[in-house]
Amino acid sequence: MRNLTGLLFAGGLGFMLLSIAINLDFGTPTMLIGGAIQSKALQETGATNIVTSVVLGYRGIDTLGELSILFAAAASAGLILGRRHTTAGTQTAGGFVLRHGGSMLFPLLMTIGFYIIFHGHLSPGGGFQGGVILAAAFFLPLLARPGAQLHHGTLSLIEGFAGASFVLIGLIALQQGKAFLQPMLIQDTLGVLLSAGTLPLLYLAVGLKVGAELASLLSHLAQTESDV
């Protein structure tokens, strides 16, 4: 009975989607706001990567919201994982190649991660993507050496201050008589590393926060499984 209901619901939803999709014309998106942003973004934010100008400028508060969602998810997971005790997971130590491979990848991943974060306003990439790579850099050695641990205190310190600095950059703008999260310090040289005003700073905060959060979440998961 329950399966039948589920099937009916899925079928109905699929039918609705199809009948709607027929009426939408693909390939010619309505660029009402999109077009307006494309024509203005370079002058207004100074970021050559227009996606960045949307993510941090025009819809900055959404990004702050996403960061908070990530923070809430990590905190919730910490609350639940913190008390579970499974006896599963008797990992064997990795071999020589695995351990040293993990260590050698660490600096490379760090470099790439920070490169992607710092060039977020110039080329595809940015805080979210770079942050994930940073998290991977810290998590890889952990996978190679099951006994190793990340220092959770430091991670939560980075996480907290990175999130706070995002809000604080927004508040400084407010304090200077501008709007909350309004981009500041914009110069007119496009395309150089130090351009687009406060946007790279915001992306750095995003990257550090995402990196610290994911790393601590992953190591939490790893530890919960190996707790005996």
Binding site: V167, G170, F180
Partner: peptide, 24 residues
Amino acid sequence: NEHLMLTIALPLLGAFLLPIIMRS
């Protein structure tokens, strides 16, 4: 009127910093 933004921004700021402050 602009201060209204603080009713959203300050709780977020507080939430990020609270675990750090409480530890000390």
